[in-house]
């Protein structure tokens, strides 16, 4: 999904098997040398899923950070809590994600410090999302994108309702009761919508999924993604954000079934 560039003679690497770092020098100069822009993602995370349920919102992402087709880092957490009631699920470039974490954590610490003197409530999920959207759009407008797609999940304490929204490297924003990035948008989103609409109806005014039901849908979706997304891994976490706060599950795996594969020509033991 996070496409790496082809080398100059593009008959190679049609399957994105390796990333090719290309520092473009001399494009713009600066007192401290050329300004480095992220021209492409290197170490990447794949899909993130998000789903609203009756008491809050859940976000799921697996633990893999890939280097091209290499499953390079297999114990990376891509769910990041911000304050008591907000959580980011991040796909795309992991170094940009780490930078983002650092910036946002610093901002929230500053807010906490100010709140010590005026007791004003900290930034709501909506506030953080708005900031993130402006940041992503500003960076894309400088042709120096933050190479991520982010789901922001949260609980709004004032309105007493859950929050779920998407923003990506183009500054594109939207919100919906079910969301998915990357391959998840193709493979998991239909499953999430189907489950959501089965109870809530197409207008979303019926009852929402329970916590157990929501977790089941996410488990199923993560399994489908593991089966079909070559950049995924069978080890993922689910974050749950409710009025009580954020909780992130331990890493877990789906039960998978591969028996059918042995009968497939070209997969199992047969050579012909």
């Amino acid at each position: 999904m996070w496409k790496q560039p082809a080398p100059a003679n593009s008959s190679f690497n049609d399957y994105n098997t390796f990333p090719l770092p290309q520092t473009q020098r001399g494009q713009s100069s600066h007192a401290h040398g050329p300004v480095g822009h992220t021209q492409q993602p290197l170490v990447t995370g794949t899909s993130v899923l998000g789903l609203k349920f009756d008491k809050g919102v859940m976000i799921a992402a697996d633990n893999l950070a890939s280097y091209g087709s290499l499953a390079r880092f297999r114990d990376i957490q891509r769910l990041h809590p911000l304050g008591k009631h907000t959580l980011l699920g991040v796909a795309g470039d992991m170094s940009d994600f780490q930078w983002l974490k650092k910036e946002l954590d610093a901002l929230l610490r500053e807010e906490d410090a100010l709140a010590l003197s005026d007791s004003h409530p900290s930034l709501s999920p909506k506030n953080i999302y708005e900031l993130l959207s402006n940041l992503f759009y500003a960076r894309r407008s400088k042709m120096n994108p933050v190479w991520n797609a982010v789901l922001v999940g949260g609980w709004d304490k004032v309105k007493e309702e859950s929050f779920l929204a998407y923003v990506d490297l183009l500054g594109t924003t939207y919100t919906a009761p079910t969301l998915a990035t990357g391959f998840g948008a193709h493979l998991a989103q239909p499953l999430l919508r189907e489950a959501f609409e089965a109870k809530a109806g197409i207008n979303g005014d019926g009852p929402l999924l329970t916590q157990e039901e929501a977790e089941k849908v996410l488990d199923d979706s993560m399994k489908v993604l593991f089966y079909r997304d070559a950049r995924s891994i069978n080890k993922y976490q689910i974050a749950t954000i409710t009025a009580e706060g954020v909780s992130i599950s331990d890493s877990k795996s789906s039960d998978t079934y591969w028996k059918f594969a042995e009968g497939l020509r070209g997969y199992g033991a047969q050579t012909q």
């Binding site: 003679n9 183009l170 594109t172």
Partner: peptide, 22 residues
Amino acid sequence: MSYTQEPTTAPVEHRFNPYSDN
């Protein structure tokens, strides 16, 4: 052919595209 022949098409320049159509 695949190793030495010059690509018949110009190399595809991979550049960040800041636009989308919604």
